[in-house]
Amino acid sequence: MAFAMRVKVPPNSANLAEARHRTFDFFRTACRAIPSIMDIYNLYDVVNPSQLRSTIAAEIRKNAHISNPKVIDMLLFKGMEELSNITEHAKQRHHIIGQYVVGNHGLVQDVASKDEDLSPFLKNFYKSNYF
């Protein structure tokens, strides 16, 4: 309960510029947390800080198309929540590795180098059996 009390939701961003500023703030906070995350979850043998940084950047860039400040605030809140969960050791090592080190591509990564000239069938085939 005490944990829930500490969370205070800041007022919504007034405009897109403020939301953008907050996003960069969040990115910086997350990057500053990387050394302690590496330490908590003992990630030295699987990943280095720059990879984690680019993962965080990629996660943020996933939502680059969003222009509604309210939605950005919501996503930032969720990001903050995730970050505090990680830094408070509310997760376990395999969560971090599964979500941020390996990613959702799986262990075997299909490097799509010349996907352009493939037929739709083959593109679907590489993704899954069901199409």
Binding site: L118, S119, L122, F125, N129
Partner: peptide, 23 residues
Amino acid sequence: DAREDWKIIRALSEVSGVRLPYD
């Protein structure tokens, strides 16, 4: 990561450059 048999051969035929026209 298994696939249905006919899909495997269809995909292999395309990779081999003799694409079978069954989608």
